[in-house]
Computed example of a mutant assay.
Amino acid sequence: MRHPLPSLPRAAATRRTTVGVALAGLVVASGCDASRDGSNDGPGVSAAEDPDAALVDRVVAELTELAGLAASVAAAYPRLQSAVRPFGDLHAAHLEVLGAEPPSAGADRGSYAGPAAALKEVRVREQRSQRRLVDASLAARSGSLARVLACMSAGAAQRLARLSPLPAGEEA
């Protein structure tokens, strides 16, 4: 007689944990790619030799700008904080994985034509960035970096799917 295996309690994996584990894999895997050209100049790859350095720099610049946008909109329209803060948190986590400093907390208050326009600006720029992350994942020469960029794109797509427009007539 076969006895069924007892079911074990499943650990709840949060989106942040999942992205963090995927991104940590990049850090670990990047050490394995240190000397693919056969040279024995020592461990690590200098930025001059890394074919993906310029790509990572572009992604970091865009994520930094988007994190600033989220902070700016949240500062200008406090009622939009719950809508835009997840984008800022996501970009800060992605910047950390890419080895970049998260943006400083100070945010300018930008000039927007109102909360709906500010939210639309966030949506449009996040959508563009999400598509560029897909393109960057295809352009990456490192398979590990490509996977991380694809995960970042998926995270942005999830956040965009949850971003609701303001109800008609409501001001933030």
Rank of each mutant, 00 (worst) to 15 (best):
S46F: 08
A118Q: 09
L138K: 11
A105V: 09
D135E: 15
R15S: 15
A29C: 01
A161C: 08
S82C: 00
H91G: 05
A140H: 01
H3S: 00
T17F: 02
R141T: 14
E62H: 12
D41H: 04
V97E: 09
S144H: 14
M152D: 11
A54N: 09
G143L: 02
A105N: 03
V56A: 10
E170Y: 10
G114D: 11
R36G: 14
R162Y: 01
V45I: 05
A74Y: 07
G143A: 00
P103E: 09
L63M: 13
V73K: 05
L149R: 09
L145H: 03
G31I: 08
R147S: 08
A92N: 03
G38R: 01
V45N: 03
A146Q: 03
A67M: 03
V134L: 07
V59Y: 02
R162A: 10
Q127L: 15
R123V: 00
E49D: 07
R85E: 03
R141M: 10
A146G: 11
R16K: 11
G68F: 03
A34E: 13
P9V: 09
A34D: 15
A117G: 15
L98I: 00
A53D: 09
Q127W: 11
P102S: 07
T17K: 05
G42T: 08
G114N: 13
L145P: 01
A157D: 07
A54Y: 02
R123G: 01
F87P: 04
A29I: 00
G114M: 14
E101D: 15
L23E: 11
L95T: 10
S46E: 07
T14G: 04
V28H: 05
A140C: 02
A117D: 15
E65M: 05
A92M: 05
P102G: 04
D33F: 07
L145K: 02
L119A: 02
A172K: 10
L55D: 10
D57Y: 00
Y77N: 05
E170T: 12
A22D: 10
D57N: 00
R128A: 05
D37A: 02
L149S: 11
R132I: 04
Q130L: 14
V148I: 10
L160S: 04
G20Q: 10
R79D: 02
V84D: 01
P103C: 04
S137W: 04
P4K: 12
R16G: 08
A140V: 04
A12E: 13
S164K: 14
A107F: 03
M1V: 11
R125S: 12
E62S: 15
V59N: 06
G38V: 06
E170V: 12
V59H: 03
A13C: 15
A118W: 03
P115M: 07
D135L: 15
A139T: 00
D135I: 12
A113Y: 02
G68W: 04
L160D: 03
L55H: 12
A47W: 10
A13D: 14
A157E: 01
G31Q: 09
A146H: 01
E65K: 05
L5F: 06
G44T: 02
K120C: 00
R2F: 14
S82H: 06
S153K: 06
V56G: 09
R131C: 06
H94S: 09
A136D: 08
A105I: 08
